[in-house]
Design a protein around this nucleic acid. Structure first.
Lengths: 213, 213
DNA sequence: GTCTATACGCCGATAGAC
DNA sequence: GTCTATCGGCGTATAGAC
């Protein structure tokens, strides 16, 4: 679960995983730990989450966690990396769509689909980034890179729509979603996300139409 | 420091304070503790902040904190109450302005003025509300009430501008600010808030103009 | 590689002297 | 009312058996 998990889980249960040196003894414990970390961090927040919570969610004995991650920080880092990979997977899927407006609307639609989760726990990535900015470790920079990757992708869509102010529009769209997540979460009202999602759809359509002129 | 602290500190160093039963022994230690709590919660987050941090910031011995607040939760509650009072004070000040559009633009201008702080620590109230939603205590409801109070005030301004969709516009404006705070904070770029602040000004002007037609 | 048992430090909270 | 000293619990991390 990342900025948007949406359809497929993919990647996760697959056998091979790039990068990781230790191929470890079957069961993919490392993978399970990362996925558990991402979920529990989202639901409880990084600071409130103990390694015991993650170990239990991943069904791995507490002490064994340290074989894969020497510190809690490394687990947080792995969680951020996971968000990054899921964002890449999402934009790859969206890039298959025929035109930029459709891609942006699909992005928004995915956010709206996750509104129940957002109402309960906020944006999986936004809340993480917010929390990392109050920590001592340098992971906030990694979070910034992921956020920037999303902004860059959105900006390129607006550029393809012929907008010279694509960067400002990208900030506007992503900020709209992040802010909606905060309100939806605080007020526990998924309806906000649905209503504003409709508005954003119309807004994107308006931009795409104005290009045709 | 609340959703917007802006101009005056007021209220704070003043002698009397409504509500508080204990008038306590001079020095206004309770007041100092609350203000320190609000600030440190903003800078470090609630979970990371220890009572020792607050005591030090307020220049009050650790053990003495418990004379004023029996638990950490009560300090968090007092911080939320403080945000609520500061919001009331802010809207009171804005209500003195002649027309609704000017009031809304002053609200946005105040947010933009705080952009350096937002870049470093996020929105003082938004980050608190986000964090409280992951806690066990029921303070998230109190935070929701404050957010709702802001939304209601903004909505009433749009209503006065003759808009039937004032509620949606209020959500749009507040979400824009909250989302901008998240991006500004994550990317450590106060410039985002300034640029989008200009856009929001123009947007408000556009709404006010369309009313004249 | 896997897991149990435990050391160590920190923080919330209390007791009680002044 | 004010402050010091300290308890008790929990969470990170480690040691070391298997």
């Amino acid at each position: 679960m990342s900025i948007l998990s949406q359809v497929t889980d993919s990647e996760s249960t697959a056998t091979g995983r790039a990068g990781s040196p230790g191929r470890s003894g079957r069961g993919g414990k490392r993978e399970r730990l990362v996925r558990a970390a991402v979920q529990v961090f989202h639901e409880q927040g990084v600071e409130k989450t103990t390694l015991g919570d993650i170990a239990r969610a991943a069904e791995v004995p507490l002490g064994n966690v340290y074989y894969y991650f020497k510190t809690k920080d490394q687990l947080v880092e792995a969680a951020v990396d996971d968000h990054c990979e899921q964002l890449d997977a999402l934009t790859d899927r969206l890039d298959a769509l025929p035109d930029p407006a459709a891609r942006l609307k699909a992005l928004v639609a995915g956010w709206v689909d996750q509104r129940e989760t957002a109402a309960r726990f906020g944006c999986p990535f936004g809340t993480l980034a917010t929390e990392l900015d109050k920590r001592d470790d340098g992971l906030d920079r990694a979070a910034a890179k992921v956020m920037l990757a999303l902004l860059d992708w959105v900006e390129s869509q607006f550029t393809q729509l012929g907008r010279a102010d694509a960067d400002a529009l990208a900030v506007e769209l992503v900020a709209a979603y992040q802010g909606l997540s905060v309100l939806t979460n605080t007020l526990r009202d998924p309806g906000l996300m649905a209503t504003q999602g409709d508005r954003l759809h119309a807004w994107i359509d308006g931009i795409a139409r104005s290009r045709a002129c």
